[in-house]
């Protein structure tokens, strides 16, 4: 008997029935709630005019971002590992948690939002959904990440540290 068969046999037959309904969030947020909770999570909302002041070299391959303005600074083609700033679009914004959904859609790239010290999200107000449950419906067919604030750890004495392996700063600019 192979392992699969053995485990399934040990687990035994199903008892049937129907799954309880999903929870069904009653949260109905909007843009203002998203902004407030995004800030609470440690994110910063910046204006396009602030972007030229961001230090270093930017990396982006995201079609949604389109042609990035020259005055945003210097771009690098090397790899996201060497960039100071990773720029992505996003797929949904969640009011109740201040989270950003970034799928692995072509061009978006997982490391762009991760290997860099600063992640900049270029977002459309129309992407604010009503609830986390609704956001889970627009994850896309492949992989996705729900980002809620900058990378952090409280492993050492419970002291909150920003930017342990992921970005230290999470910025959002409305387009």
């Amino acid at each position: 008997m192979d392992a699969r068969e053995a485990v399934l046999r040990a687990v035994g037959p199903p008892s049937g029935g129907t799954a309880p309904p999903s929870w069904g969030s009653e949260q109905r947020g909007g843009i203002a709630e998203f902004e407030a909770n995004f800030r609470l999570s440690g994110g910063e909302i910046v204006g396009a005019e602030d972007l030229a002041r961001l230090p270093g070299r930017a990396w982006s391959r995201d079609r949604d971002v389109g042609t990035l303005p020259d005055e945003w600074g210097e771009y690098t083609d090397a790899s996201p590992w060497d960039a100071d700033l990773g720029i992505t679009g996003c797929d949904a914004l969640v009011p109740e948690t201040g989270s950003i959904v970034v799928s692995s859609a072509p061009g978006r790239g997982r490391l762009t939002s991760l290997a860099v010290p600063t992640h900049l999200v270029w977002a459309d107000r129309g992407l604010v959904v009503a609830s986390l449950e609704e956001a889970l419906g627009v994850l896309g067919p492949r992989s996705a990440v729900i980002v809620t604030g900058p990378s952090r750890s409280a492993d050492i004495e419970g002291v909150m540290i920003r930017g342990v392996h992921g970005p230290r700063r999470l910025l959002l600019v409305w387009r």
């Binding site: 909770n37 999570s41 391959r61 109740e96 948690t97 201040g98 989270s99 692995s104 072509p106 061009g107 978006r108 790239g109 997982r110 490391l111 986390l132 994850l139 067919p141 492949r142 992989s143 996705a144 990440v145 729900i146 980002v147 809620t148 604030g149 900058p150 990378s151 952090r152 992921g166």
Partner: peptide
């Protein structure tokens, strides 16, 4: 926390059109 910082939803190996993974 309201959610952990990263909720990683893993849908399989990288496809041709995906740039990393």
């Amino acid at each position: 926390q309201p959610l952990t910082v990263y909720t990683h939803i893993i849908g399989g190996p990288r496809e041709a059109a995906e740039q990393d993974g």
